[in-house]
Design a protein around this nucleic acid. Structure first.
Length: 445
RNA sequence: UCCUCGGUAGCUCAAUCUGGCAGAGCGGCCGGCUGUUAACCGGUUGGUUGCAGGUUCGAGUCCUGCCCGAGGAGCCA
């Protein structure tokens, strides 16, 4: 039996007789000639069946193939510029074909479909080329994240998903029954990360995160993946340096290793090539000024209304979108008002109404992909904040301990995987960046 | 929770404004074609018009209520 190869390696086997194991993606019948487009998970390759080259049984078997039928096909690899596929440029001259199963009435066609139909068939939709490409970029983003952090001294220590109380006391959490007492699905591992840095210096957790917010937009999931690095002896400036190195590495790795997928998606990679350190840094106050200018310059009354903001309020999506349109690279916005952010953020020296917080906004209108800050290191200040925020001291006793035994300046951030993949792939909705998205109106399949 | 848009064949849509035989393309099936790129050509198959009620000689179309979905706001990564 000829050697079984993967389609991604097809160019290394020109002139050899090889076997592919996969599924029929598309078939064109020209009478005495058939084009089978086969996918095997690593790529897509065209297999050509000439009636004169194969037995009548093989030719008829090929004619019986429907979309998504499973098959094992053998043939000789030939270089041909006309051959479509990924990587493409090579095709198989079929000599033998074994049909494992003829699929009946596969619902998804290679044409436009509606969102609801595709989401109902997500378990099949992920076989489609665009979805395949997006999810391969996702896998590369995840590997780049782990590689960079592992190579820069961050120890991977994952934090619990079942937690006793609200981490930040703000967003709505999913409640579960934990042997008779309520427990909540984690919205962040940050507080546990802060414990871990005192044992390991630099750490990160990477896992699913849950928000029971009734958000109904293209940038929200109820279950999403977040990587949260945290570092001891790290102030806000050092944090921004880490973030820009980290994000640049992720983007450049995708450009290098997933060029084919990004091309398939029609991504203009020129934007991504500019993502190298340093990133522009503007303060919340400067951002507010820019937003004021944008409001003055626009004639769009609706936009004027959406951009209305007073000092002290956090930015909404419209603000972020307009700000990032003014930059070619991701932009840091730092120094948000204390009352707009979480209780644990270190105050700005001499300006207690401002926090040492920083968000990283992706360009081209994609908005926030990272939120981070320097954390409060003084136990008395932390106690004061817990009181001001109305949080129960008992639940945070262990967290206060961290400031009692060798407290140091420390900082960390959380990067949303799906938003990052959405930006890198140039998509308009993040639901395609995770195999099975969980959204307000979607828990099936 | 609020605002806007939508629901017609397996899929994508037309017919809705101005009530009058339920339509097309794709898919499926049959036939033709040796370079197709979501092929093309001929034939054929295909309907609880989201649900319930109302107006009317007659409702996919008008009215009322409900259900479902999408986009946006808020919240956030």
């Amino acid at each position: 039996m000829p050697k079984i190869i993967r389609i991604q390696d097809i160019a290394q086997h020109v002139g050899e007789e090889v076997t592919l194991q996969g599924w029929l993606y598309h078939r064109t019948d020209k009478g005495k000639l058939q084009f089978l487009r086969v996918r095997d998970g690593t790529g897509y390759a065209q297999c050509v069946v000439f009636k004169k080259d194969v037995s009548p049984e093989v030719f008829e078997a090929a004619r019986s193939l429907t979309q998504e039928s499973s098959l094992i096909v053998t043939g000789t690899v030939r270089q041909d510029a006309r051959a479509p596929g990924l990587p493409g440029g090579h095709e198989l001259s079929v000599t033998g074909l074994q049909v494992l199963q003829v699929a009946q009435d596969y619902p998804i066609q290679p044409k436009e479909h509606g969102v609801e139909f595709l989401m109902d068939h997500r378990h099949l939709w992920i076989r489609s080329q665009r979805q395949w490409a997006v999810l391969r970029v996702r896998a590369t983003v995840i590997r780049a994240i782990r590689d960079w952090l592992d190579d820069h001294g961050f120890v991977n220590l994952d934090t619990p998903i079942l937690t006793p109380a609200a981490c930040e006391g703000t967003t709505t959490l999913f409640e579960t029954d934990y042997f008779g007492t309520p427990a909540y699905l984690a919205q962040s591992g940050q507080l546990y990360n802060e414990a871990n840095i005192y044992a390991f210096g630099r750490v990160y957790c990477f896992g699913p995160t849950f928000r029971a917010e009734k958000s109904k937009t293209r940038r929200h999931l109820t279950e999403f993946w977040m990587v949260e690095p945290e570092a001891a002896f790290c102030d806000l400036d050092q944090l921004m340096e880490i973030e820009e190195q980290f994000v640049s590495y992720i983007v450049q790795t995708c450009l290098r290793e997933r060029a084919q997928e990004l091309a398939l998606l029609g991504r203009d990679t020129g934007h991504l090539e500019k993502v190298v350190p340093p990133f522009p840094r503007i303060s919340y106050d400067e951002a507010l000024e820019m937003l004021g200018e944008i409001r003055e310059q626009t004639d769009d009354e609706e936009l004027k209304g959406l951009l209305e903001i007073e000092w002290g309020e956090d930015f909404g999506s419209p603000h972020e979108t307009e700000l990032t349109k003014r930059f070619e690279k991701p932009v840091f916005v730092y120094g948000y008002p204390t009352r707009a952010k979480a209780f644990y953020m270190e105050p700005w020296p001499g300006r207690p109404e401002v926090s040492k917080s920083v968000d990283l906004l992706a360009p081209e209108g994609y908005g926030e992909i990272i939120g981070g800050s320097e954390r409060i290191s003084d136990p008395d200040l932390l106690l004061e904040r817990l009181r001001e925020w109305g949080l129960p001291r008992e639940a945070f006793e262990w967290y206060i301990d961290l400031r009692r035994y060798g407290s140091v300046p420390h900082s960390g951030f959380g990067l949303g995987i799906e938003r990052t993949v959405t930006w890198i792939c140039g998509l308009d909705h993040l639901r395609e960046t995770i195999p099975f998205p969980r959204m307000l109106k979607r828990v099936y399949p």
